[in-house]
């Protein structure tokens, strides 16, 4: 591994100032489960590694009925499922957070890191998109908000400028009778990378019979996680049932742009998008109607 300087930053401004000064030469570390591997394999060669874990803002984890959920960029996955209220309110996010690596990876890995690493197969990103999450980003000129569905631009690349950092992820407060679900397909039952991942979120009316809103996002079937607006839209106003679900699954399948690689073939992935979209919708609807 190439040598580097390690700076534990204590404020957002300090971290941003280093980024501003160093540009591509600096890299932020939080859980390190992606970055340390990349450093070791020489895939990234920063001169400076800035540890953000001592910055208060990136460690916040809070929930209320008005603002919803705030997940600091350095909050490790295990803290999400360690919170009973988050587990109850956002099971669709927990689905993803409890799938990233194994238990020992979740002790360090963060949703923020998962997002900034911008892997097309990242587990948390389709779930965050489905939940309409917003990335809160800090830069030299203050904060800006980027919808997670627009955050990733290509494999490993995001909308972040070289001198910007992710501070937190905001997930809206849930409306009545709404729930999400995330499902992925992997050959092993754990410790694997998604061949396909599907995040969904649905809201039902007060009778819990008609879908009033829905969002569907796909992982590992394109250069970035894909938000398939039209698939969710097709469900709006539809009574829950296999007909509407099948249609949404078909739309999602058509939107997928999979490739063949060592983890799966394009044909297999296209097929799995429909299967997993159906199953994830079933799961979210079951949660919402319970």
């Amino acid at each position: 591994m190439q040598a580097f300087e390690y700076i534990p930053a204590t404020t957002v401004n300090e971290a941003i100032a280093i980024l501003h000064q160093q540009g591509d030469q600096a890299r932020l570390i939080s859980g390190g489960t992606d970055l340390i591997v990349q450093l070791r394999e020489g895939r990234r060669k920063p001169k400076i590694v800035v540890d953000i874990k001592r910055i208060p803002e990136v460690n916040q984890l809070s929930y209320n009925l008005i603002d919803g959920l705030t997940i600091g960029a350095a909050v490790p996955c295990y803290k999400l499922y360690g919170s009973a209220v988050i587990k109850e309110t956002y099971p669709g996010l927990i689905d993803a957070a409890s799938l990233i690596g194994g238990v020992q990876i979740q002790g360090r890995a963060t949703l923020g890191g998962n997002l900034c690493n911008a892997s097309p197969a990242a587990d948390s990103i389709p779930a965050l998109i489905a939940h309409n999450a917003i990335a809160v980003v800090a830069g030299m000129n203050g904060e800006r908000h980027i919808p997670v569905q627009d955050f990733c631009t290509s494999p490993g690349r995001t909308q972040l400028e070289p001198d910007e950092m992710l501070v937190s992820i905001q997930v809206p407060a849930p409306r009545a009778h709404s729930y999400g679900a995330y499902l992925r397909f992997t050959p092993r039952n754990e410790m694997d990378i998604a061949v396909v991942g599907v995040g969904v979120w649905v809201a039902l009316d007060d009778t819990r019979v008609v879908i009033t809103a829905a969002r569907i996002a796909l992982g590992a079937v394109g250069p970035t996680p894909l938000f398939v607006n039209e698939a969710g839209a097709s469900l709006v106003g539809q009574p829950i049932g296999s007909q509407a679900i099948e249609k949404a699954a078909l739309i999602a399948q058509l939107a997928a742009k999979p490739i063949t690689d060592m983890r799966g073939s394009a044909e297999q992935r296209r097929h799995l998008v429909a299967v997993l979209t159906r199953r994830a919708l079933d799961s979210a609807i079951a949660r919402a109607s319970a």
Partner: peptide, 16 residues
Amino acid sequence: LLNGSLLDYRIPTALD
């Protein structure tokens, strides 16, 4: 060799 890691060379885990 494309899958030269214990992530992508998939030996069974306890859960499998």
